[in-house]
Design a binder for these strands. Structure first.
Lengths: 223, 223
DNA sequence: CATGATTATGATATAATTGTAACTGATACA
DNA sequence: TGTATCAGTTACAATTATATCATAATCATG
């Protein structure tokens, strides 16, 4: 999860930004002590910095150059004084972009995402679901547990992914069936049972007993 | 020397931009045939693209997504229609920045320099991907391993590049097929298999066994 | 146009995966 | 106690996805 460091004096704006970014799966963290940005920066070690130009104590320019002394982290300036001179100065100082205030939240998010993509190179991390110490990598289609790698077949993977996406909820057998065999073909209802059995066998072999619970008459459940 | 590809219809603006960038030690090259941007792009193989949104024949959005099919080169949009929606669309499409017209030449240069710095200085210099000691040079389309140079054909190279760009993730066969043959012609599904086989044979001959894993029913994976 | 390299195709092989069927066990309830 | 329902198990068969190979078509290059 990417950490975003928000250095912005305006309390409301900072809060709104943080909320919006959090909504997009980013870990947004606001600066608290504007006299001592660097120690917060070091503690957080963020993947990207959003830096207001006008700050108490020291200007954004100052902090940007401080950051650049020890880090190549992407820095995006925010300012209502987005004139050409300030922009050029900021960019020359090692900043990566300059967003004029007021800005559209959508644009902010898009810019942050674009910069993260560019800076941390396109291979975005896999989406991973975790449960009881078992890690299901939804992109690699593998399950890891207790330092073992459990290979899953297509059906096993789909079933497990579906159950973990609905952790704590009962998933109807029919729902699973429609996912695996996009409907139609009268697949024997028992076929699902067999697939679940096989999946359970692999889980148990790895030490994950009772991972998938049967709710008779309702469906399956992981919790 | 960094090559900048300027795709801008306005003759005067384009010329001025090119002169300014040249003055800063950049190799600025203007698009000539707006119906066929991609071949000029391929010929120049630029380090950065400045892309006007409003172009004859096809829009900048179109060319941006075409470029992104085969390249991660930084793309900066230029447009007088710099409204929020266009900006968000562009960024989501893989663009890196969006400059409103008219712009200050100083700002343009500063942005270009900042983007080049971010894209080439900070991260790995050339387009080289590494895995298990094998180096894939995406410019030369060759693979180096254990002091051997492995020559790859177009198809072999594209497959390997795609898999390495998604290291650790399963890539669906269909995804690969669309990359290799931009669909249309119903290429025999088996043709992909054959190409993978040939690629594997080269890899094995060089000592790279089990480089490409088959996830039956899901796709291929390098990890 | 001739040459060799590259790529596509079709036939066939192979092995992992999946589906089926027959049986078992459990639970509910008439 | 008997019967019906539902899910689990197992072994086996069928299917499917992928691999391999030989051959034909295509492409690039001089």
């Amino acid at each position: 999860m990417y950490r975003i460091f928000i250095v912005e004096d305006g309390g409301t704006i900072a809060r709104v930004m943080a909320e919006e970014l959090s909504g997009w799966g980013l870990d947004a963290c606001r600066a608290a002590d504007f006299s001592n940005i660097m120690s917060e920066f070091a503690a957080l070690n963020p993947h990207l910095v959003l830096l207001d130009l006008a700050l108490p104590f020291r200007s954004g320019f100052y902090w940007c150059s401080e950051i650049r002394k020890s880090s190549k982290v992407p820095v995006i300036f925010l300012s209502s004084a987005a004139d050409n001179m300030n922009m050029v100065t900021a960019l020359h100082q090692g900043a990566d972009d300059f967003i004029a205030k007021p800005f559209d939240l959508q644009v902010l998010v898009a810019k942050v995402q674009a910069m993260l993509r560019r800076s941390y190179d396109f291979t975005s991390p896999s989406e991973i679901v975790q449960h009881r110490g078992a890690l299901l990598d939804k992109d690699a289609a593998t399950l890891q547990y207790d330092n073992q790698k459990i290979e899953l077949t297509r059906n096993e993977f789909l079933i497990l992914a579906l159950l973990l996406d609905n952790k704590g909820k009962v998933v109807q057998r029919e729902t699973i069936m429609r996912r695996l065999w996009d409907d139609e073909n009268f697949i024997d209802d028992n076929t699902l049972t067999v697939n679940v059995t096989r999946l359970r066998k692999k889980l148990e072999k790895a030490g994950l007993d009772d991972f998938i619970e049967t709710k008779k008459g309702l469906g399956y459940c992981v919790k």
